[in-house]
Nucleic acid binder design. Structure first.
Lengths: 223, 223
DNA sequence: CGGTGTGTTGAGGCACATCAAGCCAGGTGG
DNA sequence: CCACCTGGCTTGATGTGCCTCAACACACCG
Protein backbone atom coordinates (compact mmCIF):
# COMPACT_ATOMS: atom_id res chain seq x y z
CA UNK A 1 0.00 0.00 0.00
CA UNK A 2 2.50 2.62 1.10
CA UNK A 3 5.65 1.09 -0.30
CA UNK A 4 6.08 3.38 -3.24
CA UNK A 5 7.97 6.03 -1.35
CA UNK A 6 10.69 6.84 -3.78
CA UNK A 7 13.38 8.90 -2.18
CA UNK A 8 14.94 11.40 -4.51
CA UNK A 9 18.19 12.91 -3.34
CA UNK A 10 17.41 16.29 -4.85
CA UNK A 11 18.41 19.61 -3.34
CA UNK A 12 15.50 21.85 -4.11
CA UNK A 13 15.78 25.47 -3.08
CA UNK A 14 12.86 27.16 -1.40
CA UNK A 15 12.98 30.39 0.52
CA UNK A 16 11.51 28.69 3.55
CA UNK A 17 14.28 26.44 4.70
CA UNK A 18 17.12 27.07 2.33
CA UNK A 19 19.75 24.42 2.07
CA UNK A 20 18.86 22.42 5.14
CA UNK A 21 16.52 19.85 3.66
CA UNK A 22 17.94 17.07 1.59
CA UNK A 23 15.76 14.08 0.79
CA UNK A 24 12.62 14.60 -1.24
CA UNK A 25 9.96 11.90 -1.12
CA UNK A 26 7.12 11.29 -3.49
CA UNK A 27 3.89 9.91 -2.04
CA UNK A 28 0.80 8.50 -3.74
CA UNK A 29 -2.68 8.94 -2.27
CA UNK A 30 -2.90 7.40 1.20
CA UNK A 31 0.79 6.59 1.41
CA UNK A 32 2.03 7.05 4.93
CA UNK A 33 4.49 9.80 5.83
CA UNK A 34 4.93 8.62 9.41
CA UNK A 35 2.96 6.71 12.01
CA UNK A 36 2.13 7.32 15.62
CA UNK A 37 4.91 5.90 17.75
CA UNK A 38 7.63 6.16 15.10
CA UNK A 39 10.81 7.87 16.20
CA UNK A 40 10.78 11.54 15.13
CA UNK A 41 13.51 11.61 12.55
CA UNK A 42 12.62 15.06 11.34
CA UNK A 43 10.12 17.50 9.93
CA UNK A 44 8.58 17.51 6.49
CA UNK A 45 7.98 20.43 4.21
CA UNK A 46 5.11 19.86 1.80
CA UNK A 47 6.30 20.81 -1.68
CA UNK A 48 3.08 19.92 -3.50
CA UNK A 49 -0.10 17.99 -2.76
CA UNK A 50 -1.66 17.62 0.66
CA UNK A 51 -1.45 15.46 3.78
CA UNK A 52 -3.63 14.77 6.80
CA UNK A 53 -2.52 14.24 10.41
CA UNK A 54 -4.76 12.17 12.62
CA UNK A 55 -5.12 9.96 15.63
CA UNK A 56 -7.06 6.72 15.83
CA UNK A 57 -8.61 5.54 19.07
CA UNK A 58 -8.93 1.97 20.28
CA UNK A 59 -12.68 2.13 19.72
CA UNK A 60 -12.17 3.14 16.10
CA UNK A 61 -12.95 6.83 16.45
CA UNK A 62 -10.64 9.03 14.44
CA UNK A 63 -9.77 12.69 14.83
CA UNK A 64 -8.04 14.50 12.00
CA UNK A 65 -5.94 17.12 13.70
CA UNK A 66 -4.76 19.03 10.68
CA UNK A 67 -4.53 19.14 6.93
CA UNK A 68 -1.31 20.47 5.46
CA UNK A 69 -0.72 21.81 1.96
CA UNK A 70 2.14 23.02 -0.20
CA UNK A 71 4.38 25.31 1.84
CA UNK A 72 3.30 23.92 5.22
CA UNK A 73 5.60 22.07 7.57
CA UNK A 74 4.46 19.02 9.52
CA UNK A 75 6.14 17.15 12.30
CA UNK A 76 6.06 19.79 14.99
CA UNK A 77 4.51 19.14 18.32
CA UNK A 78 6.01 15.72 18.78
CA UNK A 79 8.59 14.60 21.28
CA UNK A 80 10.85 11.62 20.77
CA UNK A 81 8.16 9.78 18.84
CA UNK A 82 5.42 11.06 16.55
CA UNK A 83 2.12 11.44 18.28
CA UNK A 84 -0.08 11.08 15.20
CA UNK A 85 -0.33 9.27 11.94
CA UNK A 86 0.27 11.33 8.85
CA UNK A 87 -0.38 10.36 5.26
CA UNK A 88 -1.02 11.83 1.83
CA UNK A 89 -4.44 12.81 0.54
CA UNK A 90 -3.31 12.86 -3.06
CA UNK A 91 -0.06 12.53 -4.95
CA UNK A 92 2.32 14.55 -2.79
CA UNK A 93 5.95 15.64 -2.73
CA UNK A 94 7.63 16.33 0.60
CA UNK A 95 11.11 17.32 1.64
CA UNK A 96 12.44 15.77 4.82
CA UNK A 97 14.36 18.02 7.17
CA UNK A 98 16.32 15.79 9.55
CA UNK A 99 15.98 16.81 13.16
CA UNK A 100 19.73 16.70 13.71
CA UNK A 101 20.56 19.05 10.88
CA UNK A 102 17.86 21.45 11.96
CA UNK A 103 19.30 21.59 15.45
CA UNK A 104 22.80 22.07 14.02
CA UNK A 105 21.61 24.90 11.79
CA UNK A 106 19.90 26.48 14.76
CA UNK A 107 23.14 26.57 16.71
CA UNK A 108 24.85 28.32 13.84
CA UNK A 109 22.05 30.75 13.06
CA UNK A 110 20.04 31.63 16.18
CA UNK A 111 17.65 33.78 14.15
CA UNK A 112 16.43 30.51 12.66
CA UNK A 113 15.26 29.51 16.12
CA UNK A 114 13.21 32.68 16.36
CA UNK A 115 11.68 31.95 12.99
CA UNK A 116 10.75 28.45 14.06
CA UNK A 117 9.24 29.73 17.27
CA UNK A 118 7.05 31.98 15.17
CA UNK A 119 6.00 29.03 13.05
CA UNK A 120 5.17 27.07 16.16
CA UNK A 121 3.21 30.04 17.45
CA UNK A 122 1.16 30.12 14.27
CA UNK A 123 0.51 26.44 14.68
CA UNK A 124 -0.76 26.98 18.20
CA UNK A 125 -3.07 29.71 16.94
CA UNK A 126 -4.47 27.36 14.32
CA UNK A 127 -5.14 24.71 16.90
CA UNK A 128 -6.89 27.22 19.13
CA UNK A 129 -9.13 28.19 16.28
CA UNK A 130 -9.85 24.53 15.71
CA UNK A 131 -10.77 24.02 19.37
CA UNK A 132 -13.16 26.91 19.19
CA UNK A 133 -14.63 25.61 15.99
CA UNK A 134 -15.11 22.18 17.47
CA UNK A 135 -16.94 23.14 20.58
CA UNK A 136 -18.60 26.44 19.94
CA UNK A 137 -19.90 26.17 16.40
CA UNK A 138 -22.88 24.41 14.86
CA UNK A 139 -22.52 21.96 11.99
CA UNK A 140 -23.17 24.50 9.25
CA UNK A 141 -20.86 27.02 10.87
CA UNK A 142 -18.10 24.42 10.97
CA UNK A 143 -18.56 23.55 7.32
CA UNK A 144 -18.64 27.20 6.33
CA UNK A 145 -15.44 27.86 8.31
CA UNK A 146 -13.80 24.86 6.78
CA UNK A 147 -14.69 25.82 3.22
CA UNK A 148 -13.52 29.33 3.92
CA UNK A 149 -10.07 28.20 5.02
CA UNK A 150 -9.91 25.78 2.11
CA UNK A 151 -10.71 28.65 -0.24
CA UNK A 152 -7.97 30.70 1.40
CA UNK A 153 -5.43 27.93 0.80
CA UNK A 154 -5.47 28.14 -2.97
CA UNK A 155 -3.89 31.03 -4.79
CA UNK A 156 -5.88 33.30 -7.08
CA UNK A 157 -9.48 34.50 -6.94
CA UNK A 158 -11.70 32.68 -4.47
CA UNK A 159 -15.15 33.36 -5.88
CA UNK A 160 -16.81 31.74 -8.87
CA UNK A 161 -13.95 29.40 -9.58
CA UNK A 162 -13.49 25.67 -9.02
CA UNK A 163 -11.37 25.23 -5.92
CA UNK A 164 -9.76 21.93 -4.95
CA UNK A 165 -11.27 19.92 -2.10
CA UNK A 166 -8.87 17.00 -2.09
CA UNK A 167 -10.28 15.18 0.95
CA UNK A 168 -13.32 12.91 1.05
CA UNK A 169 -16.44 13.48 3.17
CA UNK A 170 -15.17 11.12 5.85
CA UNK A 171 -11.99 13.19 6.23
CA UNK A 172 -13.96 16.41 6.51
CA UNK A 173 -16.28 14.79 9.05
CA UNK A 174 -13.41 13.49 11.17
CA UNK A 175 -11.75 16.89 11.05
CA UNK A 176 -14.84 18.86 12.02
CA UNK A 177 -16.10 16.40 14.59
CA UNK A 178 -19.21 15.48 12.63
CA UNK A 179 -20.53 12.45 10.75
CA UNK A 180 -20.36 12.12 6.98
CA UNK A 181 -24.14 12.39 6.83
CA UNK A 182 -24.16 15.71 8.65
CA UNK A 183 -21.38 17.00 6.40
CA UNK A 184 -23.26 15.91 3.31
CA UNK A 185 -26.56 17.36 4.48
CA UNK A 186 -25.07 20.75 5.28
CA UNK A 187 -23.05 20.89 2.08
CA UNK A 188 -26.21 20.39 0.04
CA UNK A 189 -27.92 22.90 2.30
CA UNK A 190 -25.24 25.48 1.47
CA UNK A 191 -25.66 24.57 -2.17
CA UNK A 192 -29.44 25.04 -1.92
CA UNK A 193 -28.82 28.42 -0.28
CA UNK A 194 -26.73 29.31 -3.37
CA UNK A 195 -23.73 30.02 -1.15
CA UNK A 196 -21.58 27.36 -2.78
CA UNK A 197 -21.72 24.98 -5.70
CA UNK A 198 -20.57 21.38 -5.90
CA UNK A 199 -19.79 20.70 -9.55
CA UNK A 200 -18.04 17.38 -8.96
CA UNK A 201 -16.11 15.30 -6.49
CA UNK A 202 -12.93 16.91 -5.27
CA UNK A 203 -13.85 20.53 -5.87
CA UNK A 204 -16.24 23.30 -4.88
CA UNK A 205 -17.14 26.81 -5.94
CA UNK A 206 -17.83 29.79 -3.70
CA UNK A 207 -20.81 31.69 -5.07
CA UNK A 208 -21.54 34.10 -2.21
CA UNK A 209 -18.45 34.86 -0.18
CA UNK A 210 -20.16 37.36 2.11
CA UNK A 211 -22.79 34.91 3.30
CA UNK A 212 -20.17 32.20 3.64
CA UNK A 213 -18.15 34.50 5.90
CA UNK A 214 -21.26 35.40 7.84
CA UNK A 215 -22.12 31.77 8.44
CA UNK A 216 -18.56 30.95 9.48
CA UNK A 217 -18.47 33.84 11.97
CA UNK A 218 -21.13 32.26 14.24
CA UNK A 219 -23.39 35.17 13.45
CA UNK A 220 -25.33 33.48 10.70
CA UNK A 221 -28.48 31.85 11.90
CA UNK A 222 -28.17 31.32 15.61
CA UNK A 223 -31.67 32.33 16.55
CA UNK B 1 -3.08 14.97 29.30
CA UNK B 2 -4.43 17.97 27.52
CA UNK B 3 -4.67 20.65 30.07
CA UNK B 4 -1.77 22.97 30.17
CA UNK B 5 -1.52 24.33 26.76
CA UNK B 6 0.45 27.21 27.76
CA UNK B 7 1.93 25.18 30.38
CA UNK B 8 5.14 23.67 29.84
CA UNK B 9 7.89 21.58 31.04
CA UNK B 10 10.30 24.38 31.66
CA UNK B 11 11.12 24.12 35.31
CA UNK B 12 11.46 27.01 37.63
CA UNK B 13 14.83 25.86 38.81
CA UNK B 14 16.35 25.66 35.35
CA UNK B 15 19.48 27.76 35.40
CA UNK B 16 18.54 28.76 31.89
CA UNK B 17 15.55 30.75 32.98
CA UNK B 18 16.72 31.63 36.41
CA UNK B 19 18.82 34.65 35.68
CA UNK B 20 16.61 36.02 32.96
CA UNK B 21 13.48 36.88 34.85
CA UNK B 22 13.31 40.09 36.72
CA UNK B 23 10.05 41.63 37.87
CA UNK B 24 7.69 39.64 40.07
CA UNK B 25 4.02 40.60 40.07
CA UNK B 26 1.35 39.71 42.58
CA UNK B 27 -2.19 39.21 41.30
CA UNK B 28 -5.46 38.84 43.18
CA UNK B 29 -8.28 36.65 41.91
CA UNK B 30 -9.49 37.78 38.48
CA UNK B 31 -6.74 40.38 38.08
CA UNK B 32 -5.65 40.54 34.47
CA UNK B 33 -2.19 39.42 33.38
CA UNK B 34 -2.61 40.56 29.80
CA UNK B 35 -5.42 41.12 27.31
CA UNK B 36 -5.99 40.09 23.74
CA UNK B 37 -4.44 42.66 21.46
CA UNK B 38 -1.86 43.92 23.95
CA UNK B 39 1.68 44.04 22.67
CA UNK B 40 3.60 40.93 23.73
CA UNK B 41 6.09 42.38 26.15
CA UNK B 42 7.19 39.02 27.42
CA UNK B 43 6.38 35.68 28.95
CA UNK B 44 5.23 34.94 32.45
CA UNK B 45 6.36 32.19 34.72
CA UNK B 46 3.73 31.22 37.27
CA UNK B 47 5.44 31.04 40.67
CA UNK B 48 2.32 30.19 42.67
CA UNK B 49 -1.42 30.19 42.12
CA UNK B 50 -3.15 29.63 38.78
CA UNK B 51 -4.27 31.53 35.69
CA UNK B 52 -6.69 30.97 32.83
CA UNK B 53 -6.26 31.93 29.19
CA UNK B 54 -9.37 32.53 27.12
CA UNK B 55 -10.96 34.18 24.16
CA UNK B 56 -14.28 36.01 24.14
CA UNK B 57 -16.45 36.22 21.04
CA UNK B 58 -18.64 39.06 19.89
CA UNK B 59 -21.75 37.03 20.68
CA UNK B 60 -20.58 36.50 24.25
CA UNK B 61 -19.42 32.92 23.93
CA UNK B 62 -16.18 32.24 25.73
CA UNK B 63 -13.59 29.53 25.17
CA UNK B 64 -11.00 28.88 27.85
CA UNK B 65 -7.96 27.71 25.97
CA UNK B 66 -5.81 26.67 28.91
CA UNK B 67 -5.24 26.76 32.63
CA UNK B 68 -1.69 27.23 33.91
CA UNK B 69 -0.28 26.51 37.36
CA UNK B 70 2.90 26.99 39.38
CA UNK B 71 5.93 26.12 37.25
CA UNK B 72 4.17 26.74 33.96
CA UNK B 73 5.00 29.51 31.53
CA UNK B 74 2.37 31.50 29.68
CA UNK B 75 2.67 33.89 26.79
CA UNK B 76 3.99 31.54 24.11
CA UNK B 77 2.32 31.11 20.81
CA UNK B 78 1.60 34.77 20.31
CA UNK B 79 3.02 37.03 17.66
CA UNK B 80 3.42 40.75 18.09
CA UNK B 81 0.27 40.94 20.19
CA UNK B 82 -1.30 38.48 22.60
CA UNK B 83 -3.93 36.25 21.08
CA UNK B 84 -6.14 35.91 24.14
CA UNK B 85 -6.93 37.27 27.56
CA UNK B 86 -5.20 35.87 30.59
CA UNK B 87 -6.05 36.43 34.22
CA UNK B 88 -5.64 34.92 37.67
CA UNK B 89 -7.98 32.33 39.15
CA UNK B 90 -6.78 32.93 42.68
CA UNK B 91 -4.07 34.92 44.38
CA UNK B 92 -1.12 34.39 42.07
CA UNK B 93 2.56 35.32 41.83
CA UNK B 94 4.19 35.55 38.41
CA UNK B 95 7.65 36.45 37.20
CA UNK B 96 7.83 38.40 33.97
CA UNK B 97 10.47 37.39 31.43
CA UNK B 98 10.85 40.26 28.95
CA UNK B 99 10.79 39.15 25.34
CA UNK B 100 13.90 41.14 24.48
CA UNK B 101 16.03 39.52 27.12
CA UNK B 102 14.81 36.09 26.13
CA UNK B 103 15.77 36.70 22.51
CA UNK B 104 19.14 38.03 23.62
CA UNK B 105 19.72 34.97 25.75
CA UNK B 106 18.71 32.78 22.83
CA UNK B 107 21.36 34.30 20.63
CA UNK B 108 24.02 33.72 23.22
CA UNK B 109 22.96 30.20 24.11
CA UNK B 110 21.36 28.42 21.15
CA UNK B 111 20.51 25.38 23.28
CA UNK B 112 17.92 27.60 24.91
CA UNK B 113 16.25 27.94 21.53
CA UNK B 114 16.03 24.17 21.30
CA UNK B 115 14.44 24.00 24.68
CA UNK B 116 11.89 26.63 23.76
CA UNK B 117 11.14 24.89 20.52
CA UNK B 118 10.45 21.72 22.47
CA UNK B 119 8.21 23.68 24.75
CA UNK B 120 6.35 25.20 21.82
CA UNK B 121 5.99 21.73 20.33
CA UNK B 122 4.52 20.48 23.57
CA UNK B 123 2.07 23.32 23.48
CA UNK B 124 0.92 22.37 20.02
CA UNK B 125 0.52 18.79 21.16
CA UNK B 126 -1.59 19.87 24.11
CA UNK B 127 -3.85 21.89 21.88
CA UNK B 128 -4.29 18.88 19.63
CA UNK B 129 -5.28 16.78 22.60
CA UNK B 130 -7.75 19.45 23.59
CA UNK B 131 -9.31 19.34 20.13
CA UNK B 132 -9.75 15.63 20.46
CA UNK B 133 -11.31 16.02 23.85
CA UNK B 134 -13.70 18.64 22.59
CA UNK B 135 -15.13 16.75 19.71
CA UNK B 136 -14.72 13.08 20.37
CA UNK B 137 -15.57 12.73 24.02
CA UNK B 138 -18.89 12.70 25.82
CA UNK B 139 -19.60 15.03 28.71
CA UNK B 140 -18.61 12.57 31.41
CA UNK B 141 -15.46 11.59 29.54
CA UNK B 142 -14.46 15.23 29.31
CA UNK B 143 -15.01 15.79 33.00
CA UNK B 144 -13.11 12.62 33.88
CA UNK B 145 -10.20 13.69 31.66
CA UNK B 146 -10.23 17.12 33.20
CA UNK B 147 -10.23 15.86 36.77
CA UNK B 148 -7.47 13.43 35.89
CA UNK B 149 -5.18 16.16 34.62
CA UNK B 150 -6.08 18.35 37.57
CA UNK B 151 -5.11 15.49 39.87
CA UNK B 152 -1.83 15.13 38.01
CA UNK B 153 -1.04 18.81 38.54
CA UNK B 154 -0.70 18.65 42.30
CA UNK B 155 2.29 16.97 43.89
CA UNK B 156 1.93 14.04 46.23
CA UNK B 157 -0.52 11.16 46.28
CA UNK B 158 -3.55 11.59 44.03
CA UNK B 159 -6.04 9.23 45.65
CA UNK B 160 -8.07 9.77 48.80
CA UNK B 161 -6.79 13.26 49.39
CA UNK B 162 -8.33 16.70 48.91
CA UNK B 163 -6.99 18.16 45.68
CA UNK B 164 -7.39 21.80 44.69
CA UNK B 165 -9.93 22.72 41.99
CA UNK B 166 -9.39 26.46 41.92
CA UNK B 167 -11.72 27.27 39.03
CA UNK B 168 -15.49 27.65 39.20
CA UNK B 169 -18.01 25.54 37.26
CA UNK B 170 -18.36 28.20 34.59
CA UNK B 171 -14.62 28.06 33.92
CA UNK B 172 -14.68 24.28 33.65
CA UNK B 173 -17.70 24.45 31.35
CA UNK B 174 -16.07 27.02 29.07
CA UNK B 175 -12.91 24.95 28.96
CA UNK B 176 -14.64 21.66 28.15
CA UNK B 177 -17.20 23.12 25.77
CA UNK B 178 -20.18 22.30 28.00
CA UNK B 179 -22.71 24.23 30.06
CA UNK B 180 -22.41 24.65 33.83
CA UNK B 181 -25.50 22.49 34.26
CA UNK B 182 -23.96 19.61 32.34
CA UNK B 183 -20.71 19.95 34.30
CA UNK B 184 -22.61 19.97 37.56
CA UNK B 185 -24.79 17.00 36.64
CA UNK B 186 -21.85 14.86 35.60
CA UNK B 187 -19.79 15.81 38.64
CA UNK B 188 -22.56 14.64 40.92
CA UNK B 189 -22.92 11.57 38.71
CA UNK B 190 -19.24 10.74 39.26
CA UNK B 191 -19.78 11.33 42.96
CA UNK B 192 -22.80 8.99 42.97
CA UNK B 193 -20.65 6.40 41.18
CA UNK B 194 -18.18 6.74 44.08
CA UNK B 195 -15.42 7.63 41.63
CA UNK B 196 -14.83 11.04 43.18
CA UNK B 197 -15.95 13.05 46.19
CA UNK B 198 -16.83 16.73 46.39
CA UNK B 199 -16.25 17.74 50.02
CA UNK B 200 -16.49 21.48 49.41
CA UNK B 201 -16.10 24.23 46.90
CA UNK B 202 -12.64 24.49 45.39
CA UNK B 203 -11.52 20.91 45.93
CA UNK B 204 -12.22 17.30 45.01
CA UNK B 205 -11.10 13.82 46.03
CA UNK B 206 -10.32 10.90 43.75
CA UNK B 207 -11.79 7.74 45.28
CA UNK B 208 -11.39 5.29 42.40
CA UNK B 209 -8.51 6.20 40.14
CA UNK B 210 -8.88 3.16 37.88
CA UNK B 211 -12.45 3.90 36.98
CA UNK B 212 -11.66 7.57 36.53
CA UNK B 213 -8.92 6.60 34.06
CA UNK B 214 -11.27 4.21 32.31
CA UNK B 215 -13.89 6.90 31.89
CA UNK B 216 -11.37 9.42 30.62
CA UNK B 217 -10.01 6.99 28.03
CA UNK B 218 -13.24 6.97 25.98
CA UNK B 219 -13.65 3.34 26.87
CA UNK B 220 -15.97 3.90 29.75
CA UNK B 221 -19.61 3.60 28.86
CA UNK B 222 -19.91 4.05 25.16
CA UNK B 223 -22.56 1.42 24.50
C1' DC C 1 -23.94 -6.89 -15.90
C1' DG C 2 -23.23 -7.11 -10.86
C1' DG C 3 -19.83 -5.36 -7.32
C1' DT C 4 -17.75 -1.75 -4.67
C1' DG C 5 -16.89 2.61 -2.83
C1' DT C 6 -18.46 7.31 -2.15
C1' DG C 7 -22.00 10.44 -1.46
C1' DT C 8 -27.01 11.67 -0.61
C1' DT C 9 -31.47 11.42 1.63
C1' DG C 10 -34.92 9.96 5.16
C1' DA C 11 -36.87 8.41 9.96
C1' DG C 12 -36.21 8.12 14.71
C1' DG C 13 -33.60 8.46 19.10
C1' DC C 14 -30.48 10.42 22.45
C1' DA C 15 -27.17 13.54 24.68
C1' DC C 16 -26.66 17.92 25.77
C1' DA C 17 -28.62 22.80 25.73
C1' DT C 18 -32.09 25.68 27.40
C1' DC C 19 -35.25 27.40 30.61
C1' DA C 20 -36.60 27.53 35.30
C1' DA C 21 -36.64 26.55 40.23
C1' DG C 22 -34.56 25.53 44.31
C1' DC C 23 -30.46 24.90 47.54
C1' DC C 24 -26.73 26.37 50.40
C1' DA C 25 -22.85 29.13 52.31
C1' DG C 26 -21.12 33.57 53.15
C1' DG C 27 -21.89 38.39 53.89
C1' DT C 28 -24.41 42.45 55.56
C1' DG C 29 -27.37 45.14 58.21
C1' DG C 30 -30.85 45.73 61.61
C1' DC D 1 -28.65 36.79 66.77
C1' DC D 2 -31.64 36.49 63.00
C1' DA D 3 -33.61 38.21 58.44
C1' DC D 4 -32.33 38.99 54.15
C1' DC D 5 -29.59 39.09 50.08
C1' DT D 6 -26.27 37.42 46.81
C1' DG D 7 -23.61 34.27 43.95
C1' DG D 8 -22.26 29.74 42.97
C1' DC D 9 -24.03 25.31 42.53
C1' DT D 10 -27.55 21.70 41.93
C1' DT D 11 -31.70 19.61 40.18
C1' DG D 12 -35.77 19.12 37.15
C1' DA D 13 -38.60 19.56 32.70
C1' DT D 14 -38.53 20.26 28.01
C1' DG D 15 -36.61 21.12 23.41
C1' DT D 16 -33.42 20.33 19.54
C1' DG D 17 -29.28 19.41 16.75
C1' DC D 18 -26.73 15.90 15.59
C1' DC D 19 -25.99 10.85 15.55
C1' DT D 20 -27.59 6.29 14.29
C1' DC D 21 -29.54 3.17 11.33
C1' DA D 22 -31.13 2.32 6.85
C1' DA D 23 -32.05 2.81 2.07
C1' DC D 24 -30.92 4.67 -2.21
C1' DA D 25 -28.19 7.18 -6.14
C1' DC D 26 -24.27 7.31 -8.77
C1' DA D 27 -19.70 6.62 -10.82
C1' DC D 28 -16.25 3.53 -11.69
C1' DC D 29 -14.46 -1.08 -12.84
C1' DG D 30 -13.87 -5.86 -13.72
Amino acid sequence: MQLSTIALAVQTQTPAMGAIGTGVRLLSAYDSLFREGDETTGFYEILSGAVRAYKIFPDGRRQIVAFAFAGDIVGFGHGETYRFDCDALTSTRVRMIPKASLLRAMRERPELGEKLLEVAGGEVANMQDLSILLCRKTAIERIASFLLTMAGKSAGPMVGRQLPLPMCRADIADYLGLTIETVSRNMTRLKAMRVIDLPNRGSFVVRDMDRLRLLAQCEGNMH
